[in-house]
Simulated scan of single mutants.
Amino acid sequence: MDRILNIDITGKHNFLFVGEAGSGKSEVAINFARYLLEMDDKPVHFFDMDMTKPLFRSRDVMNEIESLGIIFHHQEQFYDAPTLVGGVTRLLKDENCHVVMDIGGNDVGASAIGGFAPKVNNDYTEVYYVLNPYRPWSDNLDHIDGTLSAILRISHIKLEKVKMISNPNIGLTTDAAEVMEGNRRMAEMVGPYKDIEFLCVRKELYEQVKSRSNVPVFPIHLYLTYEWNKM
């Protein structure tokens, strides 16, 4: 995995990932936790805050995440009953570690962090909104605005805290041309309002995309796939 992601996270130690189910949010969050672990000697705590029931959750690959040296936190659920993960408040305040939070898809999942808003809307926390223009809920600005507004309303996160992450893909068969076209669409939709912080791409396509992109490119390893392929 490439160790260099040319974004400024100086003074930041909390990183929250939000977005609709199916955007690739959990995949990006896992890879970002790994990136933090490789670039710094601080311990990395990963919180699976997903209280909804999407297709995949980061806890599905908990053992693999822990094998990287990442400290994994989640709360077992009884059927679909919502639960809260312990230790969030304490670790969000701890400057001696990194916290990565994978927040459940859409506004229902985002309710998990509403009570932590004062600790999220601060200078040492980044909030990333993961978008995939190939998904129906992110294919136009109205859909993006509707979903983001609902997430912000229930989570109490301030709009100015949110940074956009482009994750254009149509699955395991995605090629470099499709990544670039999806990113172009995303830039056209959100560019007038928000810059794209970085572009995510499957690591096998990284070199092809990096030379063609005008934003930082983040190569990711796929942990969560339908076929459970480790690419």
Score class of each variant (00 low, 15 high):
173 T>P: 03
200 C>G: 06
169 N>S: 12
212 R>M: 06
186 M>Q: 12
209 V>N: 01
150 A>N: 14
126 E>L: 09
203 K>C: 12
154 I>E: 08
182 G>Y: 03
152 L>M: 15
148 L>W: 04
181 E>A: 08
121 N>K: 14
171 G>L: 02
200 C>H: 04
206 Y>V: 04
206 Y>E: 12
143 H>F: 02
163 K>T: 04
143 H>D: 15
192 P>H: 14
149 S>A: 09
156 H>C: 07
121 N>T: 06
125 T>D: 11
170 I>L: 06
183 N>V: 03
185 R>P: 00
172 L>S: 13
192 P>R: 15
183 N>L: 01
163 K>E: 03
121 N>H: 08
124 Y>S: 08
199 L>E: 01
174 T>L: 00
196 I>M: 01
174 T>Y: 12
159 L>D: 15
143 H>P: 03
196 I>C: 06
208 Q>C: 04
190 V>M: 01
194 K>D: 07
211 S>F: 10
151 I>T: 06
190 V>Y: 02
147 T>E: 10
212 R>C: 03
188 E>D: 15
122 N>W: 01
196 I>A: 07
136 P>Y: 05
177 A>V: 12
147 T>R: 02
198 F>W: 13
152 L>R: 11
131 L>S: 04
186 M>L: 08
167 N>D: 11
122 N>V: 15
130 V>P: 00
139 D>S: 09
146 G>F: 02
135 R>G: 02
179 V>C: 02
177 A>K: 12
156 H>E: 09
193 Y>E: 14
157 I>E: 05
149 S>W: 03
158 K>L: 13
134 Y>M: 07
168 P>S: 12
170 I>G: 11
170 I>V: 11
202 R>L: 06
139 D>K: 03
127 V>I: 08
195 D>L: 09
156 H>N: 15
148 L>K: 01
192 P>L: 14
172 L>M: 10
211 S>A: 13
169 N>V: 05
198 F>V: 11
203 K>I: 10
195 D>K: 11
193 Y>M: 15
154 I>L: 06
209 V>W: 13
210 K>N: 06
152 L>Q: 09
140 N>I: 05
142 D>G: 02
176 A>E: 09
208 Q>I: 08
189 M>C: 04
168 P>H: 07
142 D>P: 04
182 G>Q: 07
188 E>M: 14
205 L>G: 03
148 L>Q: 01
174 T>A: 01
129 Y>E: 03
149 S>E: 07
142 D>W: 08
152 L>K: 11
187 A>L: 03
153 R>L: 10
130 V>Q: 02
171 G>E: 10
172 L>V: 15
178 E>T: 13
212 R>H: 14
156 H>M: 08
192 P>N: 09
170 I>N: 14
166 S>N: 02
173 T>F: 01
144 I>H: 01
130 V>T: 05
163 K>S: 11
147 T>C: 13
151 I>Y: 00
122 N>A: 06
140 N>F: 08
208 Q>F: 02
135 R>V: 10
166 S>M: 00
180 M>T: 03
126 E>R: 10
178 E>Y: 10
